[in-house]
Design a protein around this nucleic acid. Structure first.
Lengths: 230, 230
DNA sequence: TTTATCGCTTAACCAAAGGTTAAAAGTGTT
DNA sequence: AACACTTTTAACCTTTGGTTAAGCGATAAA
């Protein structure tokens, strides 16, 4: 059941892209090579990746923008920026966007691999997305990409919105998921109707989860929700 | 309200050590500065740290050895290497030893902070977003983030206002919390009605805390309140 | 000791937040 | 265009929690 970490490489330069994807594949990674930003985002929606390597200089949509889109979505994937520009301001911008490392070209392949591993070491067990088993105790698992919640021997097929909310709750397991944050991430804005929609989704999730006695969603009045595992 | 991430800086160079510890402290970290490896290891045994910054070139025991000792011990702390040597072989050695980042001198302080945060973001999930256990003796803990006061085996769910007041009291533990200060902080202004509201909240907090014989809120006439721990 | 102020507690009130269910509107598929 | 399914809107009801009110006790100054 051991699978290779899946890496999404976003690089428009044909030569560098080829070299890197070959090298990473040789080092035991499962590499997908996207040539531009939009392609990368589509792939990220459809498939799970453990890590994303983003070239900053890309045609049409630069790496920073791609990162922003990733951060704004519910898909959580660590990313490393790759760039020829050794400008401090860009570096800081990269980190501000939440990147996990920032590497300046020319790339030393061995160092790149070492840094990828360092990031994966930290993320793999804490963050989801690539491993499929998500949910908690007893007989429950949740598979984000198929949107199937498996409890006590039965499968619950969740809707997209249900899955997104559950995913966020899982990412904040046993701690508060701020209501406003969740709304901004999933619905894009925090208004009356979206709040009510979220209430409805929560209600439905509770119904699904009711078969698992070890998990429950509690409300913290005026703040948000918490998924509690016991 | 939140507590600062605790950083252990291991650096023998007096100048650099001073500059970095001052800078990091200014940036909101709680910094401890160890001058050599053995000192660092002793500190790590005795105190919790969120992250360790290791200079590679140290007297008596180099940073790599310190890292090996850390990895071999039960103490798990992420570490970043700091070195003047930009040798690829050293970098790879560092990552092989499990470091989370490897920074070459001269250090850009802003980049250092960005990289520290990037590491903490991944590793310190609990200490990072959850301000930790706060309350005092016997069996009491208070978790601000989830607003739960845990006393003698039972959970008391506090309201937002109760939590805010308790938090302020805890921040002034065993010393006076000025009434006017508290009112301005929590209610925005000190008027008759807000004072009455605060009275009610204090009363409710006392009821919650009554199960813990070692903590009580006392009034200092005309001044404010004090949370006394015994 | 008197008196004015300050503090404590309980209860009541009420607006806001949340829970649930159902109907309506939106979406995609055959 | 009929369908199955998802999401939003609506409606109705319950819970929550901050505030206000009122009465009494405590404290300190005169």
């Amino acid at each position: 059941m051991e699978t290779n970490p899946r890496i999404l490489l976003v690089e428009d330069d044909k030569n560098l892209g080829y070299i890197l994807s070959e090298y990473l594949a040789m080092k035991g990674f499962s590499v997908t090579w996207a040539k531009d930003g939009p392609e990368a985002l589509t792939l990220l929606q459809k498939n799970p990746y453990s890590l994303c390597i983003l070239d900053v200089m890309l045609p049409s949509m630069d790496g920073f923008s791609v990162a922003e889109q990733i951060a704004a979505s519910t898909v959580q994937v660590p990313y490393i920026f790759l760039t020829a520009k050794n400008l401090k301001i860009d570096k800081l911008k990269g980190f501000k966007l939440g990147c996990d490392d920032y590497i300046v070209k020319p790339v030393d392949e061995e160092e790149l691999v070492a840094r990828i591993k360092a990031v994966l070491k930290r993320t793999d067990n804490t963050l989801q997305q690539d491993p499929q088993q998500l949910l908690s105790l007893g007989r429950s698992t949740f598979h984000f990409h198929t949107q199937v919640l498996h409890i006590a021997g039965t499968d619950h097929k969740l809707t997209s919105k249900e899955s997104e909310v559950l995913m966020l709750l899982l990412n904040h397991k046993n701690s508060l998921l701020d209501r406003e944050t969740a709304l901004k991430k999933i619905w894009g804005s925090n208004d009356y109707f979206n709040r009510r929609s979220m209430d409805v989704i929560i209600s439905r999730l509770r119904k699904h989860l009711s078969d698992d006695g070890h998990v429950k969603i509690t409300n913290i009045h005026g703040r948000g929700y918490m998924l509690q595992e016991s």
